[in-house]
Amino acid sequence: MMFEEWISSALVCAGAFFYLAGTLGMLRFPDIYTRLHAVTKADNLGLGLLAAGLMLRAESWPAMIKLALIWMLALVTSATACYLVANNALRAGLPPVLGRYRSGSRP
């Protein structure tokens, strides 16, 4: 029982860490395309780890599957939203930052 609790807490903490990384990426990355990477990858991994941690402590099988379902739903919706935003930005002619980038070298 204790062991399960430890694993669960570790997963939830890891999830929170990736949420933080996603927010930081959102604030620090240079253009909309790279920010999209931060939102879709870091946040979904954060939610996935968080859901996995809570699944270990779920009270029943259906509750556990429901947590997995919520994560899958979030994955599908954010992948679709990511494609839509990236595609529209490209069509609207928002220029992506290309080539080597370091946050110090450009304002």
Partner: peptide
């Protein structure tokens, strides 16, 4: 700088909100 940047943040609130609700339910 652009509206889609703001929209992205709203999307992020959605994912984070889902996480918060799951934690609160537990």
């Amino acid at each position: 700088p652009t509206p889609p940047d703001r929209m992205l943040m709203a999307q992020m609130f959605g994912t984070t909100g889902v996480g918060i609700l799951l934690l609160l339910s537990e």
